[in-house]
C-alpha cells in the first residue's frame, strides 16, 4: 500500500475524506463530552433509562438470533444455488433497507396488528405484538435482516464449492459438509453480519415506535425525553446510549477481527 500523501490526488482525496470522518466523529464526540460525569452517573441510576437500554439490547439480540436461524440458510441458498425468482428473493431481502422505516412499521402493523389474522393467532398463545416486546423484536428483525443475510451470502460465496465437494467424497453428508466446511469458513463474514444486524437493531426507531411506543426502547426513550423536556434532559441519555453502543461495537469488532486473522 502507498503512503497517504504519495501525490496530489491522494492528498486531495485525503482532505475530502477527512471532512466526512469529522462530520461523523465530531457530533458524536461533542455529545459524549458535553455531559459531566456526575450527570451521566445520575442518568445511569435512572431506572427508566437502564431498563430501556437493557430492553433494547436483548430485543435486538433476540431479533439477531431469529435472523441467524432463518437468514443463514437463506444466505447459503443464495450463494450456492440457482433457482427461478432468485433475483426477486434477493430484491425482497434488500427491500427493508430502502423503505422508510416508519412505513415498514405501518406495514408490520397491517400484518401483526391486533385485529389481523396473524395477530389474533399469536394472541391465542399469549404473544402480542402491538405495544409489546415481540413487536419491538419483529420491527428490529424487519429492518436489519438484510445486513446479516448479505454478509453471510458473501461469506459463503467466498468458500470454493470444491471444498464442500471434497468433503462429500470423503463421506460427509450435505449437512456435515455445511457444518464442518462451509459454515466455519464463512463464519467471519457471518459474525460481522451478526454484529451489524445487532447494531442496526439497537438503533432502530421508526419501525419500533409505530409497533410499540411502550415498552420504550432506548431510541424511543431518547425521543420522548427530547420531545417532552428538551435538549438539556435528552443529552445525558444520548451520551450514555452512544457510549454503550460504541464500546460494545468496538469490542466486538476487535474480537471478530482477532478470530478471523487466527
Amino acid at each position: 500500500m502507498k503512503p497517504l500523501f504519495a501525490n496530489r490526488m491522494h492528498a486531495t482525496f485525503a482532505v475530502l475524506g477527512l471532512l466526512l470522518v469529522l462530520f461523523i466523529a465530531w457530533p458524536l464526540l461533542r455529545t459524549v463530552l458535553a455531559s459531566s460525569p456526575a450527570l451521566l452517573w445520575q442518568t445511569v441510576l435512572d431506572e427508566e433509562v437502564r431498563s430501556s437500554i437493557w430492553l433494547t439490547f436483548y430485543a435486538s439480540l433476540f431479533a439477531t438470533l431469529i435472523g441467524f436461524i432463518l437468514g443463514v440458510p437463506l444466505a447459503y441458498l443464495l450463494a450456492r444455488t440457482d433457482f427461478p425468482g432468485k433475483r426477486l428473493v434477493e430484491g425482497i431481502v434488500d427491500l427493508p433497507v430502502v423503505v422508510p422505516h416508519s412505513a415498514a412499521g405501518i406495514a408490520l402493523l397491517m400484518v401483526f396488528g391486533r385485529r389481523t389474522l396473524l395477530g389474533q393467532t399469536f394472541s391465542l398463545v399469549g404473544i402480542k405484538f402491538v405495544s409489546a416486546v415481540p413487536g419491538i423484536i419483529i420491527a428490529m428483525l424487519f429492518v436489519s435482516l438484510a445486513h446479516l443475510v448479505n454478509a453471510a451470502r458473501e461469506g459463503f460465496e467466498a468458500v470454493p464449492t470444491r471444498l464442500e465437494r471434497v468433503a462429500r467424497t470423503l463421506g460427509a453428508s450435505p449437512w456435515v459438509a455445511f457444518w464442518r466446511v462451509a459454515f466455519p469458513l464463512a463464519w467471519r463474514s457471518i459474525l460481522s453480519g451478526i454484529i451489524l444486524m445487532w447494531a442496526r437493531g439497537l438503533s432502530e426507531f421508526g419501525a419500533v415506535v409505530i409497533l410499540a411506543y411502550h415498552p420504550t426502547v432506548a431510541p424511543v426513550l431518547l425521543f420522548e425525553r427530547f420531545a417532552s423536556f428538551g435538549l438539556q434532559y435528552a443529552r445525558p441519555v444520548a451520551t450514555l446510549i452512544l457510549l454503550i453502543c460504541l464500546t460494545t461495537f468496538v469490542t466486538l469488532r476487535i474480537v471478530a477481527g482477532k478470530r478471523g486473522r487466527r
Binding site: 471434497v166 462429500r168 467424497t169 470423503l170
Partner: peptide, 17 residues
C-alpha cells in the same frame, strides 16, 4: 450419494480445508 460411493477425489488446486 457421493458420500456413500467410497471415492477419493483430488483437485488440481488441492482444495485443502
Amino acid at each position: 450419494a457421493p458420500e456413500e460411493r467410497g471415492i477419493g477425489f483430488v483437485y488440481q488446486d488441492y482444495a485443502l480445508f
